[in-house]
């Protein structure tokens, strides 16, 4: 993959996944990661923390997030609200930790020389983090299956228009990455 190739993710003939992003694109992703990390940051722990609960990863204070974007990142696992709340207390902390770990793996790849080869773990972290960013922006924008037109019809200075262009950029690159990872997989 050379610097003249279009930016994005690509699988080479040896089966390696490479990433090439322009400087401005790296900066954009880094800013989005900062915002997502802030959104995902765990709430202040209750004092005192029960050492046994801490050890087994139970979060007795875990509730359905009020923020719709967070509620989409941490959805109910049961349609019954009581069962969903119970399950959340046992799983939400690990899910949050996992998302933050993927985010940090992605952040580390942005600091390397461009273009850069992604390990399978890094490619997986990119895939999931691109999706978390799209879920967050998509929820904020209330995207539907009607396509891009409603957003392209917005005034030039409407902030949602710019946000949609970012969302669209993330969508394009996530799709490219899926195909890079699939190429060569048995069909």
């Amino acid at each position: 993959m050379g610097l003249l190739d279009p930016p994005g993710f690509r699988r080479n003939r040896h089966g390696q996944v490479w990433m090439h992003l322009q400087q401005g694109e790296r900066q954009l992703v880094a800013q989005l990661l900062d915002q997502l990390a802030e959104l995902l940051a765990p709430p202040e722990p209750r004092q005192p923390v029960d050492p046994l609960e801490e050890l087994v990863g139970i979060d007795p204070g875990a509730v359905r997030p009020a923020d719709p974007a967070l509620a989409r990142l941490f959805p109910d696992a049961y349609t019954d609200p009581e069962a969903a709340d119970e399950f959340r207390r046992f799983t939400q902390r690990d899910l949050r930790t996992g998302k933050l770990a993927h985010l940090e793996l992605v952040r580390a790849t942005l600091e390397r020389k461009d273009p850069t080869r992604l390990s399978p773990d890094e490619a997986d972290a990119w895939l999931r983090t691109l999706n978390d960013l799209r879920l967050t922006l998509g929820t904020r924008l209330a995207v539907s299956e009607d396509g891009p037109q409603p957003f392209l019809d917005l005034d030039e200075d409407d902030p949602r228009r710019g946000m949609y262009l970012v969302y669209d950029w993330l969508t394009y690159h996530q799709d490219r990455l899926v195909h890079a990872l699939e190429k060569g997989a048995p069909r």
Binding site: A77, Y78, F87, T91, L95, K99, N131
Partner: peptide, 18 residues
């Protein structure tokens, strides 16, 4: 099924157990 649903949530898919 709870493990599978947790995995789906980790991928960002919307999944439930029933």
């Amino acid at each position: 099924m709870e493990r599978d649903v947790t995995a789906m949530h980790s991928y960002g898919l919307w999944a439930t157990v029933s």
